[in-house]
């Protein structure tokens, strides 16, 4: 097991190096503006641009730039500096991370808490009205763009512009340590909106996976042995059926930790997604690179964790 984990971590590091290299190359071969010109701002004189080229190391050969970039990144965690604000990208990311973590973790709990039970119930009551109703609603939420859903929810339930003023609206977010109650209430709507689509997807996935699992021989054996149906379903059925869902869960959480751009924008939550969005609108490549790498890190780490979790969840899985 330990060897497996170490091997996965090493593969993860290799993958990160590849992603870093890819983002570095992409930003230099795509038809983008020259970083020194962007950093210099409008009307900058050629002298200023030339000096910035030296400051940013852009006068060096590409391979040297790549080496310096990779060395700074992996030895010092240096992600560079924003072209627009001059702020350290690393500090900007760490500043925004708590909001994104809050949003992602909260909504992940909600979508798992809603989606999985609905999927299980639908699977157990296949082709009943309950099944059809729940899967129909799920389809509705899957089809609803989260940006649109966010606006609708705000127009309906936000304390400022809502028709029924229930929850704090856009711009109400406060940090957990600054004001825990405000943090919680301000995230209720974003959590629900973000979770809605995911819960619907997970309900359908869980339903499909559980139906397939319940048709397996070992389930029949368990029933034949006289185990209570509850135990058959939860201990033998769900436990096996949930394994592929966890793989997707890890990916989804990893992607969201890289930034939920639309939800963060609609609800004015200063997270990684907003940081990335602003960086894209200003062609602020160091920030874009930083957030891309962050998303890659989260996805890789989440995958490693979920692979490890497999061993505990599914008795058929053994790593050697």
């Amino acid at each position: 097991m330990t060897r497996y984990v170490v091997r996965r971590i090493l593969w993860g590091v290799l993958l990160l190096i590849l992603v870093s290299a890819l983002t570095f190359v992409l930003f230099r071969i795509l038809p983008t503006a020259e970083p020194a010109r962007l950093r210099a701002g409008r009307n900058a004189s050629p002298r200023v641009i030339a000096e910035l080229r030296v400051d940013l190391g852009l006068n060096k050969p590409l391979i040297t730039q790549f080496w310096l970039y990779m060395r700074g990144l992996f030895l010092h965690g240096d992600l560079g500096y924003s072209y627009t604000s001059g702020a350290s990208v690393r500090s900007l990311i760490f500043d925004r991370l708590p909001a994104t973590l809050s949003l992602t973790i909260g909504s992940a709990i909600i979508w798992m808490a809603i989606g999985l039970p609905i999927g299980i119930v639908s699977a157990l009551r296949r082709r009943t009205r309950t099944d059809r109703a729940s899967m129909g609603v799920a389809l509705l939420f899957i089809s609803a763009p989260e940006y649109w859903l966010g606006l609708i929810v705000l127009y309906l339930f936000a304390a400022d512009i809502g028709r029924v003023k229930v929850f704090p609206g856009a711009g109400a977010y406060a940090g957990l340590t600054a004001d825990p109650w405000k943090w919680f209430t301000s995230l209720i709507l974003p959590w629900l909106v973000l979770a809605a689509g995911f819960a619907a997807v997970y309900a359908r996935l869980m339903r499909g996976s559980l139906i397939e699992t319940l048709g397996q021989d070992y389930i029949r054996t368990a029933r034949a042995k006289g185990l209570p149906e509850r135990q058959v379903v939860l201990r033998h059925g769900v436990r096996a059926a949930i394994t592929p869902i966890l793989t997707i869960f890890a990916l989804d959480v990893g992607v969201l930790l890289g930034g939920a751009v639309l939800i963060e924008t609609v609800f004015e939550i200063p997270g990684i997604g907003r940081l990335n969005y602003d960086a894209i609108t200003h062609a602020d490549f160091p920030i874009i690179q930083g957030t891309v790498l962050l998303a890659a890190v989260f996805i890789i780490v989440a995958n490693i964790l979920i692979d490890i979790a497999y061993a505990y969840l599914d008795p058929r899985v053994r790593y050697s």
Partner: peptide
């Protein structure tokens, strides 16, 4: 306050 969605903040201001 910085960063709100323009479709939302306009309505927040008007109302």
């Amino acid at each position: 306050q910085i960063g709100g969605d323009t479709n939302v903040i306009g309505r927040q201001v008007l109302e």
